[in-house]
Structures are given as structure tokens and as C-alpha cells.
Write a protein that binds this DNA or RNA. Sequence first.
DNA 1: AAATATTTGTACGTATGTATG
DNA 2: GCATACATACGTACAAATATT
Lengths: 77, 77
Amino acid sequence: MEIDPLGITPVYQQLADILRAEIRSGNLPVGKPLPSYVTLTQQYEVARGTAAKAVQLLVKEQLVRIVPGKGAYVISR
Amino acid sequence: MEIDPLGITPVYQQLADILRAEIRSGNLPVGKPLPSYVTLTQQYEVARGTAAKAVQLLVKEQLVRIVPGKGAYVISR
DNA sequence: AAATATTTGTACGTATGTATG
DNA sequence: GCATACATACGTACAAATATT
């Protein structure tokens, strides 16, 4: 999956879409943490705040639960 | 109302609290827009993103509705 | 017990895009 | 076209929570 920084869809949405797809597919299994912000920023070349915003969307969708100091864990798919 | 940048409560929460109080008191009446981000940043000496985050909280609480290019209007109190 | 590393939380400042008037 | 206002995005920095050494 690729992110288009110039696309119509905001980058944070694109990233959330990617992560959601990874969760739904089981590629990111329940109980496992998402890649850290640092990893996400490097892997998708987005800013940290953008990565955080994307993950927050998934939290709102109750797909992940964030544990400060630990990670963002997949709780459902 | 004052913001304490070193307080326990996050600045964006403090600002949201202040604005909420202004709305509840009728000081910021229904139908009127909140001060703009520029005004908020100057008045409370916070960053623009912080002001935006505070206003977003009020949106979530359905106290205000943001109209892009116009302002953040009080819709309830 | 203490120091270090990792990860999320908050906050800053800045730049650019989009919508409205 | 221009000014105003919100939206998105970047990069950076430090604090707080957690885990490990």
C-alpha cells in the first residue's frame, strides 16, 4: 500500500485505511501492537502527528486500544 | 481565565474548559462564532494546533459546529 | 535501585491547501 | 484578486509511562 501525499484523501485517512485493511486481513492480528509511531513515520514517510491522528481514528472505531508507553494494540477486526 | 502551561491538565483541555464555560455562561452566545484560531493563539498564548484541538473537543461535545472558511459557531450550551 | 531505551502524549512553530466573503 | 478562517501536514522537542538492563 502506498500513500499519495498529493491525493484528495488526507494522508492521515490514507494511513488509517491501510492499517484498517491490515487489521481486517489479519495481517495485523488481534492482540498484537501496531507498528510504533517511529516505524510508521519511517515506513510511510509521514510526520509523527499524522501517524498519531491515523491511529486515533482506529481507536475511535474501536479497532485498537492505545496503552501509553507500550503501544497501540489491535482489539478487534 | 488563565492557562497554566505547566499544570497537570493539558493546555488544550484547559482552553476547552474555558471556552465551554464561556458558552455555558452565555458569554459566547448561541449562533455566534468563537474567536478565531489567530485570536485564540494570541489571547491565550497557545499554538494554533492546540487551539484547534480544544475547539475539536467542543465539536465532539456538540457545543459548536465548524464551518470552514467562516468560523466555529456555538450551536448549544 | 538506577540508568537506559522505547513508545505514546502533549505542544510548539511553520507552511500550504481549501472554503468563504 | 484579496483577506480571513479552518484543514492538513510537516518537523521538532520534551514529558510521562513502560520495560529492560
